[in-house]
């Protein structure tokens, strides 16, 4: 029995609404000159799940994540299969509306390892978010509507008291939450997280964990690099291990794995990340190739 069922906003997997795509790796490998970081691998990461990439330091987990996110040239293909509802709640005759709705829901987030900003850079939390999420050029005053949106966003990640703080003066946990706020504002449903809790104290780790669990509950697909086995055991739906140059499709931690490419009652739209870091996909309805640069 297929676990998926179409809804207005996405699909249901075992009573769990899915907004994010599944990720298909097709003979994916990564080489630096003569050195092959990992052997070709083919697997599918199911939609709406929390996948964790584990392995020793230097094994290539972060590189694998960057490949999946389209940030690193590689060999083989990567497909993001976004769930496209047949009954989308929109007038299906309006192809343009449907496409816009699809593009709106097909946002990707990337949370890198903790990185420091220059402490003297005169960019506040508010400046950073506004310049990230809206087109009005950074030296213009934001509209009231944007201010309200910003306040809501900041309170979601617990940074509402820090809107005028320079980004270089934020603590590690606050910096990571700022990155979450940026991605949340864009409505991302596919998340790539590269050890987002590294270097954070326990309280900050808890705050980040809550955000991640909320995203999972919202039906996003999350791929996260993590090194702590206990954490993986506790929270991962699925583990991918990078060991001695091999990418191993590990155990499914939180129940049986489902194949995202076999969605019943839905069209599956592909996005291929090729070696030149572009995304191209075949729209099966129009049978035309479209190319979107990352």
């Amino acid at each position: 029995m297929n676990a998926y069922a179409s809804t207005d906003a996405g699909f249901m997997v075992e009573g769990h609404e899915v907004k994010g795509p599944s990720i298909e790796l097709d003979q994916l490998s990564l080489s630096f000159g003569e050195h092959q970081l990992f052997q070709p691998v083919s697997m599918t990461l199911a939609a709406g799940k929390l996948h964790m990439l584990t392995g020793a330091n230097g094994a290539g987990k972060s590189s694998l994540l960057k490949c999946m996110a389209g940030l690193m040239p590689h060999q083989g293909d990567i497909f993001w299969h976004w769930p496209v509802g047949l009954d989308s709640g929109l007038d299906s005759s309006s192809e343009r509306d449907l496409r816009e709705a699809q593009q709106e829901s097909q946002k990707v987030a990337y949370i890198p390892q903790l990185e420091a900003f220059d402490a003297t850079l005169p960019i506040t939390v508010e400046d950073y978010l506004l310049a990230s999420i809206q087109p009005k050029v950074f030296f213009r005053r934001p509209a009231d509507k944007e201010q309200q949106r910003l306040a809501l966003l900041l309170s979601t990640v617990g940074l509402d008291q820090k809107s005028q703080r320079k980004i270089g003066q934020l603590s590690g946990g606050e910096r990571q939450r700022l990155l979450f706020a940026r991605a949340l504002a864009q409505g991302a449903s596919l998340w790539f997280l590269d050890e987002p809790m590294n270097g954070l104290d326990q309280k900050a780790q808890q705050q980040i964990l809550q955000l991640i669990l909320q995203l999972k509950a919202d039906g996003c697909t999350l791929v996260m690099v993590h090194h702590d086995p206990a954490f993986v055991e506790a929270y991962a739906d699925h583990e991918v291990r990078v060991v001695d140059g091999h990418v191993i499709d590990g155990r499914v931690v939180g129940g049986p794995e489902v194949e995202g490419a076999e969605v019943e009652g839905a069209e599956v739209e592909g996005a291929v990340l090729d070696g030149r870091m572009t995304v191209s996909g075949v729209d099966k309805k129009a049978d035309q190739k479209k190319k979107v640069t990352l």
């Binding site: 996110a69 940030l71 990707v108 990230s132 087109p135 950074f138 940026r182 991605a183 990352l294």
Partner: peptide
């Protein structure tokens, strides 16, 4: 501005909406 600050993030998530 945002590409200068965090190029990888701008590549994946875009900037300025």
């Amino acid at each position: 501005l945002m590409s200068a600050l965090q190029p990888d993030l701008a590549r994946v998530q875009g900037a300025g909406g």
